[in-house]
Each structure stands twice: as C-alpha cells, then as structure tokens.
C-alpha cells in the first residue's frame, strides 16, 4: 500500500517565511519569530523542487537517482527533513487540487556523493524582536584572545 505522505506537496510558508538559495545553501528567515535557518547538502539541491510543489516521493526519487543512494534511506532522510521544515512552519502543505509549481530537474546539482540533508536553526536574534530595535547585544569589545578561539598564525 502506498504511503499517503509520499504524495504530499508543500509551499514556502510565505509570509512570514522567506528563503534564498545562495552558494549551494539555502538561508531561510521567519520574519515573525526572528528564527533563521541554514539548509545544506541535498536539502539545498532539492529546495526549488520542494517549494515548487514536488511530492515527497518525487523528491526522494530524484535524490536517490542523482546520488545513486539507497532509496529507502533517502526516503527516510527526506521525511525527516520535511518534517523538520513543517514543524518549524517553514513549509505549509498544499491542499488537494492546489496547483503544483515547476519541478526542477537535477541537471545543476553538484555531482558528489550523497551528502545527506543539513539543517541548522539559529535563534540568536529572537530576543531582540521583543524590545526596541537596539541591535547592541553586548559590549564584547575589540576581539580579545580567547583559549576557545581557533586559528593560528
């Protein structure tokens, strides 16, 4: 029996969410909450498909085919990835009958081994939205040498 979730389609939850694909990465910002996100790896590659209305199944198939990866594990990764995006209200489901957008081919994807789906969440700006827009979050001063800092001459 076919998994009913595999036919689900999504769109970017816009507004308040905005996203830009840049340099093999997607930066997403929720303008209401101030939380922003970084999507990398296969997630960035499938982003145009995903927000263009491709189904989970179409995305999984494309990723598995392009990277020559195991279909079942890719499917699990896609499900996890989309669930994260939906839980963060980055995506909203398209209802039955809603027109799907264009579905990208994989022509411009990087030809590398399957990188998995990278997803990072940043909430360091969130508290500032609750106050007057004073951007100064602290007086850290001129960069001071710290044992935790990396890099050497």
């Amino acid at each position: 029996m076919t998994d009913p979730h595999s036919a689900l389609r999504y769109a970017l939850n816009q507004p308040p969410v905005v996203g830009e694909v840049i340099d093999g990465e997607v930066m997403v910002i929720n303008l209401d909450t101030g939380v922003y996100y970084s999507v990398t790896g296969a997630g960035a590659a499938v982003w145009p498909m995903l927000v263009g209305g491709a189904t989970r199944r179409e995305i999984s198939d494309q990723v598995a085919r392009h990277y020559g990866a195991d279909a079942a594990s890719v499917e699990r990764d896609v499900d996890t990835f989309i669930t994260q995006l939906a839980d963060e209200a980055i995506l909203r489901p398209l209802h039955d009958g809603a027109a799907a957008g264009s579905v990208d081919t994989a022509d411009e994807w990087p030809a590398v081994t399957y990188p998995g789906f990278g997803f990072e969440r940043y909430d360091d700006m969130q508290a500032l939205l609750l106050i007057d827009p004073v951007h100064e979050v602290g007086d850290f001063g001129w960069p001071s040498r710290s044992a935790d800092d990396s890099g050497n001459a």
Partner: peptide, 23 residues
C-alpha cells in the same frame, strides 16, 4: 568565504530589526 556565510552574517540584523523590510 561563501556568499551564504556572508548572507547569514548580514541579513538577520539588517532585516529583523527593521520592521516591514522583510522579503
């Protein structure tokens, strides 16, 4: 550096502290 790294550094404070600047 990657353009994405720079965008992450510039965009949040340029956008989130400016209401209606948004998309």
């Amino acid at each position: 550096a990657s353009a994405a790294e720079i965008l992450r550094a510039v965009a949040p404070s340029s956008i989130l502290l400016f209401p209606l600047a948004g998309a």
